[in-house]
Amino acid sequence: MDFEPKILGIACNWCTYTGADLAGTTRLKYPQNVRTVRVMCSSRINPSFIIRAFQLGADGVLVGGCHPGDCHYGTGNLYARRKLAVTKKILEFAGMEPKRFRVEWISASEGKKYAEVVEEFTNDVKALGPQTKFKIRKD
């Protein structure tokens, strides 16, 4: 059987989540591997969420926020960019494949971009195979 990755999507309420909605209402086709959680702003994302997601078995984590400059709260995603950049460095230096974690800025009108990013990311993660590095193993 083909490997179908489990991907955690964390999307900001104002842009990416609405963008995902748009992708749905315009009936774009994209893989169903992403389970999306909505947060109010991408800067609300605690890097521990991402580590925890990998520990609980996520094969990839996709974070979406407003384009820099377009944050609903003005500057939230500018802080988020620094936080997520450091998170990426941590994952990479700990030994996680960098392709399992991706951040994209997707606005509410970019339903097409949402579908494309999800497709691309799903294929990347699929190519990497199941994530076992952080996953908690039960003996």
Binding site: S48, I51, R52, V86, T87, K89, I90, A94, F134
Partner: peptide, 25 residues
């Protein structure tokens, strides 16, 4: 509860990586 209270390897990973993050910069 971010990490197991008992000393498990998974908890160690969570503890240290998060502490590294908290000290970044």
């Amino acid at each position: 509860r971010w990490a197991d209270k008992s000393p498990t390897p998974d908890g160690h990973l969570m503890y240290h990586l998060t502490r590294f993050y908290h000290l970044a910069g």
